[in-house]
Structures are given as structure tokens and as C-alpha cells.
């Protein structure tokens, strides 16, 4: 099967309107205000890394995007137009696919069976159209330059972790999706397989998809992301271009919510000295000053972050790699 160039739209990195834009999203579970005026953007042709500490609201945000949770307030704009997403099917019909961490594959089915699970093609006599499905699956995989699987008729149980991740990702792009959300795709993988999957993530974006990557692994984020959105205690700490920040700054955004003049501006209650560790201590002690912030402050902070992103040009990641881990 030769290389196909299925819908290889030219890359429009960072330019123009975001394909997915969330404005001042709020979500509460009872008294717990999990997402507070969260802003989020994802652009076609870009990998947007969504980072944040445990409990920062990453999963909640993703589930709001995917329609598992419906948002309490705020704007959900898809391709510039406001949309209502109350159900996973709403998201799927917009072209948003989520690859969950557990992959949701049936080990006893082959690759083709898994990629078409629940959306099988049938021909006359309502029989499965295996040929068409196998051809489409093959085209999708080779379109993503995936050549690590021997046969499309291999059972998933015989695949390695990286190959399974590949199948799950390929499944999500089979349906002309426009936004693919990957939840910790490399969490369970070894070094070589992580490299393969990150390679694939890059290719997805190069094909013109908006890829949202959730990861705890700073190395993955630095390697593959074009933009980084950091959440801190349910708020958007910063949305920055990857090239504009250092690893140290990202770590500070994750742990403290701000770094220098990027991020949520510290309030005047004692730990606003730009020291990430102090903020973390405060968090552990349950002070969690960020929650007391005014929404206006968040907006300001976001604006500052944009401004900062434009001015600061630092790139010393290789020097400090591993410092975060």
C-alpha cells in the first residue's frame, strides 16, 4: 500500500482563528468550583499541551470539551461559532475525538475491528464489509506513516503498548476528526515507544489536526508542543508559545501558577515572591490563595501572559532538562 496524502492540509501554525476556543469556562461539582473562568485555545496544525498539577482541572476541562460534562457557564466556540456540547456524541459530530488513557481497545479483536468498533461498515445482506474497513484502516495508518504493525488482522492482545496507543490514535483520526485529545499517551510506555508515539503526535498536527496533549512528562511537552496551556488550581495560569518559555518557567507555572511576570499575578497575602516552592507549601497547607483571586485578576494575568510571551525569548531547555523531574 503506497503512501496516501489524505487531507493533508497545509500547516497553519498559530496563525488565524483557533479551531477550538473556550472563554471563561466555569464548572462546579456541588460546592467545589473546579474550573474558574478558564480560557483555552487550540489551533489547527498545532500541538497544544495542557499541563497542570494533579487537581488543577485538566481532566475536568477535557471532559467538558468532550461533552462528558456540560459546562456551567462560558463560551464554547468551535471554528469561530458558538456551539453547545452536552453529550460525547455532540463532540464527535463536531469532529472532536478523545483518546483516553486506558485506550478503550478490545484485546480480542484485530486492529481493523477496533478501529471501526461501533461504526462498522456493512454491505449488502447487512454483512460486515471487511474489505472496505481494512482498506480504510490501512490508508489511515500509512497516512500517519505508521509501519510498526505487521498485519491489520493482528489481534490487539499481541500488540505492544506503543502499537496499541498508535491504534487508538489512528482510530480517532479515521473519522475526519479535526481535534484529537490525547490523555497521557506516553504514561505507560518505554523510551523508544514514547518516541514513536510523540512522532505520531507531531504528524497528526502536521496533517492539519488540532492536537491537545495532556501530559505529566515535561520532556514530552517540551519535545512536541507548539503551545502550552498551564492550569493552576482551576484557572488558566498561562497560554504561551512553546518557544517563549523555558522548562523552569513551565514548572513554575504548574506549581505556582506564575513565573516571573507570566501567569496569575501573585496576590498580596504573603507568598507573592515568585517562589514556586513557597506557593506549593501554601497549597499543601490548604491556603490555596489562588482561589481567592478575582476573575478580573485572571483576565489581567492572561493578558500579561500574552504580552510576556511576545517579549521574552528564552530557550535554555536542554541545559535544565531533568531539573523538573
Amino acid at each position: 500500500m503506497t503512501e496516501t496524502t489524505t487531507s493533508a492540509t497545509p500547516r497553519t501554525a498559530g496563525s488565524g482563528e483557533p479551531i477550538l476556543k473556550l472563554r471563561a469556562i466555569n464548572k462546579s461539582f456541588g460546592p467545589v468550583h473546579v474550573l474558574q473562568d478558564v480560557d483555552f485555545e487550540a489551533h489547527a496544525g498545532e500541538v497544544t499541551a495542557l499541563v497542570g498539577d494533579n487537581g488543577a482541572g485538566k481532566s475536568t476541562l477535557v471532559k467538558c470539551i468532550g461533552g462528558t460534562y456540560s459546562i456551567d457557564g462560558g463560551d464554547y466556540l468551535f471554528e469561530g461559532a458558538p456551539v453547545k456540547v452536552h453529550d460525547p456524541r455532540d463532540a464527535a459530530s463536531l469532529g472532536i475525538e478523545i483518546v483516553y488513557q486506558d485506550l478503550a481497545l478490545c484485546e480480542n479483536l484485530d486492529i481493523v475491528g477496533n478501529m471501526f468498533l461501533g461504526r462498522e461498515r456493512v454491505s449488502g445482506w447487512r454483512t460486515l464489509d471487511e474489505n472496505t474497513m481494512e482498506r480504510m484502516a490501512g490508508e489511515t495508518l500509512s497516512g500517519l506513516s505508521v509501519r510498526t504493525v505487521k498485519s491489520l488482522r493482528q489481534q490487539v492482545s499481541s500488540l505492544s503498548g506503543g502499537q496499541r496507543q498508535t491504534v487508538a490514535i489512528a482510530k480517532s483520526v479515521l473519522w475526519n476528526s479535526k481535534v484529537v485529545i490525547l490523555d497521557e499517551p506516553t504514561a505507560a510506555l518505554g523510551v523508544a515507544q514514547t518516541a514513536q508515539v510523540l512522532d505520531l503526535v507531531r504528524r497528526l498536527a502536521d496533517r492539519g489536526l488540532a492536537v491537545i496533549l495532556i501530559s505529566h512528562n515535561m520532556r514530552d511537552v517540551l519535545e512536541v508542543a507548539d503551545r502550552i496551556v498551564a492550569l493552576y488550581l482551576g484557572k488558566t495560569a498561562a497560554q504561551v508559545q512553546r518557544a517563549d518559555v523555558t522548562q523552569t518557567q513551565i514548572v513554575e507555572l504548574i506549581t505556582a501558577g506564575h513565573s516571573g511576570n507570566i501567569g496569575l499575578l501573585p496576590t498580596a497575602n504573603g507568598n507573592g515572591n515568585g517562589n514556586g516552592n513557597a506557593a506549593q507549601v501554601a497549597e499543601v497547607l490548604g491556603i490555596a490563595d489562588g482561589i481567592a483571586d478575582e476573575p478580573a485578576a485572571v483576565a489581567d494575568a492572561a493578558a500579561d501572559a500574552e504580552a510576556a510571551a511576545g517579549t521574552e525569548e528564552t530557550d535554555g531547555t536542554d541545559g535544565v532538562q531533568g531539573a523538573a523531574e
Partner: peptide
């Protein structure tokens, strides 16, 4: 048939099958 495929799918991973509709 589709039905048969779904029987195998549910037997393999019912949560994945549910998510697949």
C-alpha cells in the same frame, strides 16, 4: 454481522464497547 462483532467486542472490553456506542 455487526451483531456478532459486537458480541465479541462486549466480551473483550465492555467499557470500550459502551464508549463506542
Amino acid at each position: 454481522t455487526r451483531y456478532g462483532r459486537h458480541v465479541y467486542a462486549v466480551g473483550g472490553n465492555d467499557e470500550a464497547s459502551r464508549r463506542a456506542g
